[in-house]
Design a binder for these strands. Structure first.
Lengths: 362, 362
DNA sequence: CGCCGTGCGGAAACCGTATCCCATCGTTAC
DNA sequence: GTAACGATGGGATACGGTTTCCGCACGGCG
């Protein structure tokens, strides 16, 4: 406990050590390293040699305390193993690294407590922005919670970015990067309808999840547009996972076995649905068609390859980071609440082999 | 450019602001917040109220400069979208958050340049440890490179952890968390052999990748143990992706079509292989058996569900973090090069539905 | 009533770096 | 020849906390 300095010799080299050993001042070393001040070639050489000898690296904490610092973004994600969000994270991380920014990643596990704790932790770190990934549960409290985050971060000179969530209401200092969720669902459902399907099992996801709400709404609109009655009994809610897809189809086969297609809220859900159909002796797509959503790699790896909606996840990540970077460079001149606060990216249907007209066996 | 203080009022609140507003000294505020010094109830209340009013959070940079700081681990990963490594990352992140540690994530994209840059960046951040994820390419240079990283980090009071890579040779200050790669492959190949398969297509991965080398070796040992001649012509190297699995099977069907089973180096490779077999009109497992490696969720989502080798990825992540934490608490008393430097976790075969004895149609 | 111990709050010294301001030196112009 | 000037390097200070060292006030006891 007491010997705090026991490992003193193992501590990292400071800029003072370098200065001393090179026989120059601390200021000169700093200038050589940051390179934003003219120094003589001789000085540079002397300093750099010592830097190499000592394997010196600047202390990022001290640097950012003194004002220099590397810009940092924080990525907060529910579950890092979810393929879709992993792609967004990749987009953010790639774009960040490209401009020399650093990225922190935290996982919330869908726990509001942890989300709060992490936002505060990131605030402590002085991040330039906090990027929140993934659909949100639209509790009454949600809007207030996010608005509080947004203001809190804004007051600290940071910024909140919502990716894949609906924008916040009112004059809240946050940026939203979204995709045309409802439109994708509309197009996907239209694809099924135009193939002749009328009885479609819909598995949009959790009823409270904003993503699921949008996907369901898009499907409903498509049914309307085609003049096909939409049967609420054909909708089954549940989590975005394989098991739900499997169980929902199992249950539907028992309750309403006349469906000829499955509109899954997610590729993973589609995979589960496909498996359940097979287990029941049904063929895909000969007996039942299936479509997914997200277009993660799994979609093209299933048999048959899945027709699905492509969502530009990685691009969204890049866009999110760009929005933050622009805002940061735009600086004081830009007002919050400006036009760029809500960015929407397009989606499109990717046609593969999991859809056929109904009743066409063989 | 010039108006550096333009946004002055937007800057975050400092501990001094809190102290002033609460009418107490800076030291008192610090003591209330860190809680490692007795303060009166009255003082605590006064300070906490102001903290809430101002939405104050401590500046992590200043704190860690002054010695307080939150311990941080860095996770360096080739590709965040790879399922296996994502699980390790999840394990590390979860264990880190559990003890209040922070985790940084960086992706290297298999680029040694970026790897170097990131290690240095992390060193600047003063991380407690750098955790390198994933199989390594065993170039001559690799050992030297890692040894340099290890010493460099060690000198800065940090530590290098290799996860899923072979341990470093010699007296290098690094910890390795590994799994029984070769043993898993041995068991998996034995499973096929005991089912009666003799002609097995082996897709171990890239020839230079240490993971692939181990998996191939394990398979070879199993063949030896069973007294079955191992045909090098049945081995096809390539990347751990879906396309490689597909193309390798396609090529093998042309060159050596007498194989009755596929031993894939990865579940994803197995998925590709399965697809190629189907495309050629072969059934799995009736005509050809397939096994994978890793036991990622995909394995149980394929049709048929894949028999594979379970690798405790998430556990490895947790173990890696625990190793770092222990070392940190063990402190100066522990010598580098101690026993705990190489941890090996077990693997086991998970039997599902993708294997049948050869020649048993129906 | 005075002394001393105790508990709590304040002033100040760092942590490692960037930057401002000034001193110095060599150079050029008058 | 001297003054003014540009190019560099050094010293000092600020960044926002933590922590050590002190001093003060209060209470109990002799």
């Amino acid at each position: 406990m007491s010997q705090r300095k026991a490992t003193s010799d193992a501590g990292r080299a400071t800029i003072r050590d370098v200065a001393e050993r090179a026989g120059v001042s601390v200021a000169s070393v700093s200038r050589v390293l940051s390179g934003n001040y003219p120094v003589s070639e001789e000085l540079r050489r002397r300093v750099m040699k010592v830097v190499r000898d000592l394997d010196y690296v600047t202390n990022a904490h001290a640097r950012s305390l003194a004002g220099g610092g590397t810009p940092t973004v924080a990525i907060l994600i529910n579950n890092i193993t979810g393929a879709a969000f992993a792609h967004v994270a990749k987009g953010v991380e790639g774009a960040a690294t490209l401009r020399g920014w650093l990225s922190l990643v935290g996982t919330t596990g869908d726990d509001p407590e942890r989300e709060l704790a992490l936002v505060n932790l990131m605030r402590q770190q002085g991040v330039s922005a906090v990027i929140l990934l993934g659909g949100a549960y639209d509790y009454d409290e949600y809007q207030l919670r996010m608005a509080r985050f947004a203001r809190s971060l804004d007051a600290a000179g940071s910024h909140l970015v919502l990716v894949g969530r609906p924008p916040l209401e009112g004059d809240v200092p946050a940026t939203t990067v979204d995709y045309d969720n409802e439109g994708g669902a509309y197009a996907m459902a239209s694809h099924l309808l135009s193939a002749g399907h009328r009885r479609v099992l819909v598995l949009p996801g959790h009823a409270e999840l904003t993503t699921a709400q949008g996907r369901l709404k898009g499907a409903q609109r498509a049914f309307e547009a085609y003049g096909v009655p939409f049967d609420p009994g054909m909708v089954r809610h549940g989590p975005y996972d394989y098991e739900h897809g499997y169980e929902a189809v199992e249950a539907a086969l028992h309750d309403t076995p006349d469906f000829t297609a499955v509109l899954a809220g997610t590729d993973v859900v589609a995979a589960g649905a496909m498996q359940a159909l097979r287990a029941a002796g049904l063929r895909v797509p000969e007996d039942v068609s299936i479509v997914g959503y997200d277009d993660i790699p799994l979609a093209s790896q299933l048999t048959p390859q899945l027709t699905t909606v492509h969502v530009p996840y990685e691009e969204m990540g890049r866009v999110a980071l760009r929005a933050v970077a622009d805002r940061r460079e735009g600086g004081a001149g830009r007002r919050k609440g400006a036009d760029g606060d809500h960015l929407v990216l397009g989606t499109h249907v990717v046609v593969r082999n999991s859809v056929r007209p109904p009743g066409q066996h063989g």
